[in-house]
């Protein structure tokens, strides 16, 4: 009895430290966004007087009016980002699953070398070869063409790797064989039997591919030079320019508009996202 109380007594201070640290970190995550949302509703004059406030004000519409006359166009940016990210996500998830299926379900001579190549190039970011990519796209007249940002995700080595690791223990090759005996073609087996089995893995990868594509700045900024093609991050990067220098409230509002859709999606899917991040390390 006494020993037990000793243990609880000893553990308590450590627990307090734990909760204090965790709560401080949580506040650290929220605070910048809170200030941003609050300032988005405050006038430039209010921000100038006191730039930190956790209480919203009533100048949201005025800030919106200031924004609407300038280059930052959240609707165009949103639509462009949505088209590119949706296209890239579909390509990456569908074709990576197909490639993983080729690696798991069939024995072919080049299977192992092919998988080795995929693993070898998995970690290399596309950013380091952007100069050649840009020149190549420029010659093909594909700058300002969304396909230049969508099609490359058909070859997503890291996604293929993840899909293969998930498929190995999950997919029953006996079931594939019995579907064959029923007379189903190979491509049909993939679409109507393999895809449903792979849905959880595809959903996880879809979330991460979408977020990565939505947030990327380097490649879109190089390729998309026309204003009507700008994505959301390019629009955001313009907020650093001189025309916004003193429009404090409007800049915060623009930032808030770029964050809001991501936060909504994040809090709806957070459970799956956290599980997906954890899975990435377990499945390796």
């Amino acid at each position: 009895m006494t020993t037990r109380m000793d243990i609880t007594a000893r553990r308590k201070p450590a627990n307090v430290v734990l909760y204090v640290v965790c709560i401080l970190l949580a506040i650290l995550s929220i605070l910048p966004f809170w200030i941003m949302f609050a300032n988005a509703t405050r006038s430039t004059y209010q921000v100038q007087q006191q730039a930190i406030s956790l209480i919203p004000s009533s100048y949201l519409l005025d800030n919106l009016k200031v924004l609407s006359g300038k280059t930052f166009d959240p609707i165009v940016g949103f639509i462009n980002s949505l088209i590119i990210s949706t296209g890239a996500t579909f390509c990456a998830v569908y074709f990576s699953t197909l490639t993983a299926y080729a690696l798991v379900a069939y024995s072919w001579r080049m299977r192992q070398p092919f998988f080795t190549v995929i693993m070898a190039v998995m970690m290399i970011p596309t950013q380091v070869t952007s100069i050649g990519f840009y020149q190549f796209m420029y010659r093909l007249h594909m700058t300002n063409n969304f396909l230049a940002l969508i099609l490359p995700s058909i070859a997503a080595p890291a996604t293929v790797f993840f899909m293969r690791q998930y498929m190995l223990p999950t997919l029953s090759l006996d079931m594939v064989a019995s579907a064959r005996i029923d007379g189903a073609g190979e491509f049909r087996i993939f679409n109507s039997f393999v895809i449903p089995v792979m849905k959880p893995a595809m959903a996880t990868q879809a979330i991460f591919t979408f977020v990565t594509s939505w947030n990327s700045l380097f490649m879109p900024m190089i390729l998309l030079t026309r204003k009507e093609n700008y994505t959301m991050p390019i629009m955001v990067s313009l907020l650093k320019g001189d025309i916004y220098k003193t429009e404090y409230g409007a800049v915060y509002l623009a930032l808030a508009m770029s964050v809001l859709p991501l936060l909504v999606v994040y809090f709806i899917l957070s459970k799956y996202i956290i599980a997906g991040v954890a899975l990435g390390s377990v499945k390796e």
């Binding site: 947030n215 650093k240 930032l255």
Partner: peptide
């Protein structure tokens, strides 16, 4: 998960 460009300017 927040756009790095937004975070930088924020």
């Amino acid at each position: 998960i927040i756009t790095a460009a937004t975070v930088a300017i924020l």
